[in-house]
């Protein structure tokens, strides 16, 4: 996808002022080296895996670069999904009905979220969830299209540790786990006791720094890795 063109087009097509502004401020240059890019790690939690059926319950983000993770600028929102909270997602995220009772609707935090992401490259672990849920929710609330390029630490890990399945030698071999916690372990990153969108965003930022330190070149262009 040509993100530059997409952002330009959208800056004309979007009707919501804040979103227009977001697109107008442009997207990270595809040829910028990783070491010079302002990034933001993003994690959302949802009531399930299907963006058509389920909703977002929380959003966490941490701005960072390869030099520093800016914990002091981290943000976290609880949002009330329009679809009811399923019991099994409570056990995963430790978010309960009462936590969400007073939470705002996504539409109330959207502008703040846009501002936090504006001009920065988003990093996520398994980006499809973030992309699909945010796109679906924004279309549903505002009838707008919202997409942006992302670095996916899970994809990076998969490229490093997973051999293509078409090789017969790989058919019966156990695949290396690329789940966030397991991937972190490979880089001696500490285990966090709790899980929520913000801690997972922090965990993702740390993981990307480790992946770059070990396997990528900090001079690699962003466009080589984003999706």
């Amino acid at each position: 996808m040509d993100w530059m063109t997409y952002f330009q087009t959208q800056s004309h097509q979007a009707s919501r002022q804040t979103l227009k502004q977001y697109y107008r401020s442009g997207c990270t240059f595809a040829n910028a080296p990783l070491s010079a890019v302002e990034m933001v790690a993003l994690d959302i939690e949802t009531t399930g895996l299907n963006s058509q059926e389920h909703g977002i319950t929380s959003i966490g983000l941490v701005p960072f670069s390869l030099q520093r993770i800016q914990l002091n600028e981290a943000k976290h929102w609880l949002v009330k999904p329009r679809k009811p909270l399923a019991e099994d997602s409570i056990t995963i995220h430790q978010i309960t009905h009462s936590d969400l009772a007073d939470a705002p609707d996504f539409s109330e935090v959207f502008d703040e979220l846009l501002q936090a992401l504006q001009g920065k490259l988003v990093v996520a672990h398994f980006h499809k969830i973030e992309r699909q849920f945010l796109r679906h929710t924004v279309r549903n609330r505002f009838d707008e299209d919202w997409l942006f390029p992302m670095l996916d630490t899970m994809q990076i890990e998969a490229n490093l540790h997973r051999q293509p399945r078409w090789k017969p030698s790989q058919w019966f071999r156990r695949q290396a786990s690329i789940r966030l916690a397991d991937a972190r372990q490979r880089y001696q990153l500490p285990a966090y006791r709790n899980h929520n969108a913000m801690l997972d965003a922090l965990a993702t930022a740390e993981l990307l720094q480790a992946q770059v330190a070990y396997h990528l070149d900090s001079n690699d262009s962003v466009g080589q890795h984003w999706c």
Binding site: F64, R68, I69, L71, N72, Y187, L189, E206, A210, A213
Partner: peptide, 14 residues
């Protein structure tokens, strides 16, 4: 401290 912290990962040897 917690509110002003910054973080960075370093590979062994760096």
């Amino acid at each position: 401290i917690a509110q002003h912290l910054q973080v960075r990962y370093f590979k062994a040897g760096s």
